[in-house]
Simulated scan of single mutants.
Amino acid sequence: METARLQLSLDALRDGSEHMRKKYTDRLWWKECLSVTKLSCNGNIWRIQTRIGEVLEARRVILATGGEPRVPDELLRRRLEEANIRLLHHDDVVVPARLEDPPQFRKLGVVGGAHSGMLAAMNFLSLKPSASVCVFDRKPKPRFAEERDGWIKYDGTGLKGSVASWTKKMLESHDPCLSFEQISPSDDPIKKLKERKVDAVVFTVGFDKTNQIDVSFQDKTVDLSPSQPHDGRTGRLAPGLHGVGIAFPEYWTDEEAFTEPRVGFVVHFVKHLDRVFRAAIDETL
């Protein structure tokens, strides 16, 4: 199953944005590097307050505030340091150009066995073939996207493209450089890492929302924390307020009743964007 280069998506976003800015100059207000700090609504108008004190008004607001790789809390970071296990940042392993060459450690632990985790393992072993990687995940083995008749099973959470091909090859050859350890939320991660004699670790366990926006509707706080669910089909957070992107992903149920989040700039995301915008426009306020 082939995947497209990320640069194609970036080029499409840039070209689409430039086209929109030129075509809708009378309807589009565009400002870069503007930080929104507060959203509030006490009727059918949302007030948008910026860090520099500007106040804008809109009937409908769509949040596309993005996310950052989830990192261990302060206690776990301190315990890793005490155990002499080096903590690597997600992007320093997932982005090949940022991975030190050659890596100054022998065994890498990867917590999280989805696409980013297996990409980290692949990048590390490509630079240091004599080293080894142990992937810690709640599943015993990686999950692969599966082509079905007109749709894809595990489209949002399964491995695809070069990462899937590499992982399958490693599994089929029983390469000792790559191993897997099934873990549960109750397990002590430091104990598991020590048992596997890991000397560096990277966490690839999803993303946290980056927005630090105070949101209220009818004087009640709108909870945007990761634990608070949103409507996975329309992105609705409150009347007149919707969210899209990695902070508010689409949740899709396939033909076999399996539900999963779908992220990434692919055709499904474009369709989801259209659905969210239509839901926002059609909503009666």
Rank of each mutant, 00 (worst) to 15 (best):
P226L: 02
I45Q: 11
F207H: 02
G16Q: 02
G235M: 01
R98I: 04
L13G: 08
C33D: 15
L119F: 06
G109L: 05
D187N: 12
Q49G: 05
K128Y: 04
W151P: 05
R59G: 13
V201I: 03
I152P: 00
E147M: 12
L171P: 01
L39D: 01
C177P: 02
G67Q: 03
S126L: 10
K192R: 15
K160T: 11
T25I: 10
D188K: 09
G66V: 04
V110S: 03
L178P: 03
I281P: 05
S40T: 15
V36E: 07
A280G: 03
E100L: 09
D137R: 01
A12Y: 09
T284V: 13
A279H: 05
R21Y: 08
S9T: 12
T65W: 07
P69K: 07
R262N: 05
R233S: 12
K191R: 13
D15P: 00
G158R: 06
R78P: 03
Q104G: 14
A120L: 00
D254A: 06
T204F: 06
D175V: 05
K209C: 05
K271P: 03
V135L: 06
G158V: 09
T37I: 15
E146H: 09
L178F: 06
Y24S: 12
H89I: 05
K31N: 13
C134Y: 02
G232P: 00
R5V: 07
S165Y: 10
P103D: 08
A97W: 02
P189R: 09
D137A: 12
G232F: 01
D208R: 07
P226R: 01
F265D: 08
L125C: 01
V95T: 14
L178M: 13
A279D: 04
A83W: 04
I62C: 04
L224C: 00
R79G: 06
L159Y: 04
S216N: 06
A83N: 07
L285A: 05
V198P: 02
I213A: 04
T3S: 13
R148L: 11
C134E: 13
R59V: 01
D149R: 10
C177N: 14
G264Y: 06
S227F: 01
V110H: 01
S179E: 13
E255I: 03
V244N: 00
A64Q: 03
D15L: 12
Y251W: 11
C33A: 15
D214T: 12
A83C: 06
P72R: 10
V36I: 15
D199V: 07
E256Q: 12
F207K: 01
